[in-house]
């Protein structure tokens, strides 16, 4: 087990190296640069030149890359040109928000997706099955900003039950020791703040969770369909086992392996920044800041955030691999 983990972590080194080179070359080949982005309409050719000189952007790409790698070894990803603060500070302040949002979205997708997929498979060919297939297709195809607009119109503007943007009501003066707002509210016993932060997760969480939800429904349905036709299920039924036991121990457990993989991949994806959702909900996470950084040509943030997120993605998938063993002893890793 330990060797397996060590091997996977070692694989990170070539991945990160390759990614950092690609990122570096890609960013510096984008048209325009931070200077133009910084000054907007007001930029003159001389100003752009002076800023490029000061930022070291006139050096060869090899020199720039060398400087970058030298700093990364000291865990220094540089300074954001948008905020003038260290990239690591920006990341640490924004990542908890993204984790909370991801957790909500994935839980939403799991809690609804797995039962729905299971029921659709059990009523294969029925109305519920067709409905869930159509709904999941819709879930994948509806653009996030449109869904955001609809959800906010219904639940925020008309019904006024869920807040439509941000992470916390500005009128609540809460303390945030960890940066996880729901958790912070519970820890500091400011329960109104915790509830408020939780309510702020609902609409962006649903908007973000629809795609994983649709995928989980479809994978669960397909996987359960495979399993219910297996001999051992028929055997269990014929020897008179309770339906709930068959469902839990014989069908779901065996059908869960592909679902777990999907959940892992989706969690990794969502964690690496829900760019659109965070932007349209003005949610202070890593995704919205990444989007801003592309427009601002904030090289340091783009490089730093994407590399850190790559590490996160690999770690999440490592956890998924380890979880296989818990679901199915036959694939327990050695």
């Amino acid at each position: 087990m330990l060797r397996f983990i060590a091997r996977r972590l070692l694989q990170l080194i070539p991945i990160l190296f390759g990614l950092s080179v690609l990122l570096f070359v890609w960013l510096r080949n984008l048209p325009g640069g931070p200077a133009r982005a910084l000054l907007g309409e007001r930029a003159t050719a001389e100003d752009v030149e002076a800023i490029n000189e000061a930022l070291g952007l006139n050096d060869s790409i090899f020199v720039q890359y060398g400087r970058f790698v030298g700093r990364v070894f000291q865990l220094n990803f540089g300074t954001s040109i948008q905020t003038g603060r260290p990239v690591t500070t920006e990341f640490l302040q924004r990542f908890p928000g993204t984790i909370e949002l991801t957790a909500f979205a994935i839980l939403f997708a799991i809690v609804i997706g797995i039962p729905l997929g299971y029921l659709a498979a059990r009523r294969h060919g029925g109305v519920l099955d067709s409905a869930s297939v159509i709904a999941s297709l819709l879930g994948v195809t509806v653009p996030v900003f449109f869904l955001a607009y609809l959800l906010r119109f219904a639940f925020s503007v008309e019904l006024n039950v869920f807040p439509g943007s941000g992470r916390q009501d500005v009128r609540i003066d809460a303390t945030h020791p960890t940066g996880f707002f729901v958790l912070d509210g519970l820890l500091t016993r400011e329960f109104d703040a915790a509830l408020d932060a939780f309510l702020h997760l609902v609409l962006p969480g649903i908007a973000l969770g629809t795609i994983p939800l649709a995928i989980i429904v479809r994978i669960t349905r397909a996987s359960v369909l495979d399993v219910i036709n297996e001999d051992y299920v028929r055997t269990a039924e014929s020897k008179g086992l309770a339906a709930s036991t068959i469902r839990r121990r014989h069908i779901l457990r065996n059908a869960m392996l592909p679902v777990a993989t999907t959940i892992g991949l989706q969690t990794g994806l969502l964690l690496s920044g829900a760019v659109l959702t965070e932007t349209v909900f003005a949610f202070g996470g890593v995704g919205s800041f990444l989007a801003d950084s592309i427009f601002a040509r904030d090289y340091a943030v783009l490089q730093g955030f994407i590399l850190i997120l790559a590490v996160v993605y690999v770690l999440v998938n490592l956890l998924v691999d380890i979880s296989y063993g818990l679901i199915d002893p036959r694939v327990r890793v050695r």
Binding site: F145, F153, V157, N160, G166
Partner: peptide
Amino acid sequence: IVFRTIPDGNTRKQELEAGS
């Protein structure tokens, strides 16, 4: 006064309508 950044124009409009 609290100045809140809401980059998306549609979101700003809906947040005003919702009273946020």
